[in-house]
Design a protein around this nucleic acid. Structure first.
Lengths: 357, 357
DNA sequence: CGTTAGCACTCGAGGATAGTGAGTGCTAAA
DNA sequence: TTTAGCACTCACTATCCTCGAGTGCTAACG
């Protein structure tokens, strides 16, 4: 059953008023905006309520959108919000200025989103199923310290400085590097068995201890990458909203947000084709803790087909249009960033996206 | 003026009761613990109040410690809490298992502290005044990508993977590395001038573009290190405590915590000699936002004389003994971690703190 | 003189009661 | 189909009251 145009208009006004003011919307407020008497509006509202798009907190308050109402709103009524060029530029610039490692960028992005939207935000990196080390490099720093640099097949790079009690030569390190690269590359975490270690240590001769040090560092890294990491930011924003004046409620949600495994397992980034954002309204969420909370998600590409998710949580009364637009912009920025790692050159490249510093 | 032993005892009971129960302590509760009538206690309490160690929320409630009272408590009355060996072990293990880069470890440590204490925690890295790059290494990955690894004088290491549109040879990279190491090491951020860049680019010949790419990455890193970075964790814990049932209050504090510049500038790690912890009670805090909040800080060594701070915030009614002990343990763990980067095997420590619980 | 018992007093917490007003549903007229 | 009118509902607020934990003071006690 299709709603009449007028009903949709009324629903839309109710949603937007409620988003703005956080108070139930009465017939009078609407009758002022449309040229209709409050009685007419009341009739329409009664219909909308019967159809499940509206709810009354109690008999004698105005109406409030139901989750179903919000859903209709985001699907049909909401105007795709366009960020101004200025805003887009700012977002991209902020992302680019922090050209660091994957984790750091994503953490930053989360913080940014939270600031932009005034809701708590979170960001997940895509967990890799089967990360393997593709390369080891050992760099001699001085006679008793060296840096280990490892790279995975998905091109993430990690390093660590090691200090040793005993001296070390360039040759030794060279030998170790070759050994590590032949024995331990292309292996998943599970394949890095103690036996393998033992064999390699044997081959390493006198400097066998170093093997295990470096490999266990590598294993830590792999483990770290396979677990999708989670960043959250902006918890305090939650308390700004009247629906979270109830401390218990706020706390429940914040707890959920800081529960890494829950957060990383539940909201799945199943994206609907073209658009990279997804909106989950109240009870549409599977997680019990989110039943009266909305989540807006956007996915981004890390490269090599891996995806990450960035999102915000807030009351169902959320400014979906604005939030989705901003989130989408950030997610796109991230995808770009990882897609072409090249920092924007100032030279005669035919890049087109040229911005100068 | 010295307090009598009995007054101290009473004060101590009040502080500890109040810490445990969050409710004003009445004379009756105390008279049960000491063998004195409530009237006697009331007289003593009146004295203590006159001396400024106690406060009454209102005429007819029990007494509550004043900041001055807490201060006396932490200075004289509080028993240094010893963590059990088990606890210490767990903390150290958790720290060591995350052997990653400086930032990551510290972030982890902050999260850990928050979990351990049930208060929001923060961690600052020591800001370096004059970080300089001490070394560049470029590692060829394949014909059109390479990893840049840079190290600063304080031995922090960062890396980044670069992808290029054009091909690259080992020789080129070798040349670049030497060039970078001769021209850009030992320079502070300010000394990395555009002129310097121009000269170097000239010397680099055909691959001049790469210089600027790598150097600007280096500059980012330096900038990043000079700004002390701040991590916060466990915001939601704040809401667990009855003094923060008032959302406004909680929000103000959380806002303060997420305001990086404020947080990094204000609580200074001036440590008092031997002990590495410091306790700031309510109005002892300079920051206006912290006037009714206590902060417990512990400093840790990053090496090269640099220090960082890790701390928790909470109501003045805080379990100072426990919090200080845990914080101190984590800080010590961090110092160890950075002092001797070698992952400690099951070695015996000549620590002297060996007491059993 | 320190300690204790007794007592009047204070004041916040919690519960009942009434008034207010925004908003509703329904009916009947335009 | 829309509108005016009207009785009704119910959260919110204010006011008042009671209850009781805890106090300060005084006088008696050892």
């Amino acid at each position: 059953m299709e709603l009449t145009e007028r009903k949709k208009q009324i629903l839309r006004i109710i949603v937007e008023d409620y988003i703005a003011a956080a108070e139930p919307v009465g017939s009078k407020a609407i009758s002022a905006k449309l040229n209709l008497s409050s009685a007419t509006i009341r009739n329409e509202m009664a219909d909308l309520e019967e159809l499940g798009y509206l709810e009354k907190p109690h008999t004698s308050a105005g109406r409030v959108p139901s989750p179903k109402g919000y859903r209709l709103y985001v699907n049909e009524l909401m105007e795709q919000q366009r960020l101004s060029l200025e805003e887009t530029r700012q977002i991209n610039q902020a992302l680019h200025s922090k050209m660091q490692e994957l984790d750091r960028v994503i953490d930053q992005a989360g913080k940014m989103v939270s600031q932009l939207t005034n809701y708590p935000a979170f960001a997940l990196t895509g967990g890799t199923e089967r990360a393997v080390i593709s390369r080891f490099d050992l760099i001699l720093v001085d006679s008793n310290s060296f840096i280990a640099v490892i790279m995975t097949d998905s091109r993430q790079v990690r390093n660590k400085l090691f200090r040793l009690p005993n001296d070390l030569t360039e040759d030794q390190l060279q030998m170790l590097t070759t050994l590590l690269n032949t024995a331990f590359t292309g292996k998943t975490l599970e394949e890095l068995t103690p036996e393998l270690m033992r064999v390699a240590e044997h081959a390493a001769g006198s400097s066998y201890g170093l093997i295990s040090i470096v490999v266990s560092f590598a294993m830590e890294c792999l483990e770290n990458m396979e677990n999708r990491s989670v960043f959250t930011a902006g918890a305090s924003h939650l308390l700004e909203h009247p629906e979270y004046q109830d401390v218990g409620k706020a706390q429940r949600l914040l707890n959920y947000l800081s529960d890494t495994p829950k957060l990383s397992s539940l909201p799945m980034p199943v994206m609907s084709g073209e658009d990279n954002t997804r909106i989950l309204i109240g009870p549409e969420n599977v997680a019990e803790e989110l039943k009266d909370t909305s989540v807006v998600l956007a996915s981004y590409d890390i490269g090599d087909g891996m995806k990450g998710v960035i999102g915000v949580v807030g009351p169902t009364r959320m400014d979906y249009a604005k939030v989705a637009a901003k989130l989408s912009c950030v997610a796109e920025g991230l995808s770009h960033l990882f897609g072409q790692e090249l920092p924007p050159p100032e030279k005669e490249k035919t890049d087109g996206s040229g911005g100068n510093t």
